[in-house]
Design a protein around this nucleic acid. Structure first.
Lengths: 132, 132
DNA sequence: ATCGGTGCAAATTATTTGCATGAAT
DNA sequence: ATTCATGCAAATAATTTGCACCGAT
């Protein structure tokens, strides 16, 4: 029986302690763009003794090791996204929900024509309401 | 002798107290995308007795009254921008400097073709190095 | 016993709240 | 004297740091 989360952590030089595995099992597979606080709530369901500081440290470690990306999208709190490929983000202003928008769904023209601004990466941040 | 900052505050139903005028004289005309802390430092040069809480409250009031926009661009701190027209932002990863990019310098295609995502506003956030 | 890695209590940073004070009627 | 706006001390929220503990040598 293999445990893919543990394999992933090892592949990135992260010792798979119980706390790190519990955080990884949730945050490496979610699409809800959680803040550290949300990760804490979710992970406590599986590991009630974990502390918020350990969640922060684990998230920062995952970012450093290239498993997660941290995003400044919501005011006042950093959110985390396990999707590493370039993509855009849509923010529902009413609910705060953040949705990934595939890279190819939009096209941005003239990124290389901005004079002395040498662009290494970019994303479009969209806001509005999700109909459903 | 007219004082344009005071006129602007009055035009937006903001009582021009000395603290608000001092904050406004800086933040309504700057292009440096300051955090609250930076505003505090700049304003203290003119009004050494002002407190950081008053700076925060004044910035939030200006945002509420439509004089400023607050932006989640730097991790962990909100920054403020007096430019209200739609535009994009370039962030210099080395220095943290944020530069406005005119709306017409870029073109984003297919914003209205995202299915159930009804886009009310958007901006491109670019990162890289400014050459000079 | 020593050392490197781990997790969390405590500290720090960022921001908001609530109330004392003063100006206008 | 009552009301309402104002500004800041104190409180709260968000995140980081530093050290005690534990397992491997």
């Amino acid at each position: 029986m293999s445990e893919p989360t543990i394999d992933t952590l090892r592949a990135h030089d992260i010792h798979p302690s119980p706390q790190r595995v519990a955080v990884g099992r949730y945050v490496l597979y979610t699409d809800e763009h959680p803040s550290a606080e949300v990760v804490f709530d979710r992970v406590r369901a599986a590991l009630p003794t974990i502390s918020l500081a350990t969640v922060y440290n684990t998230l920062n470690l995952f970012v450093e090791k290239g498993l997660l990306r941290s995003l400044a999208l919501r005011e006042g709190r950093t959110v985390f996204d396990p999707c590493l490929e370039p993509h855009h983000h849509f923010i529902d202003d009413e609910t705060g929900t953040i949705v990934d928008v595939p890279w190819d769904a939009l096209e941005v023209k003239n990124v290389d024509g901005l004079g002395d601004l040498q662009v290494d990466s970019y994303q479009v941040v969209l806001r509005g309401k999700r109909l459903s």
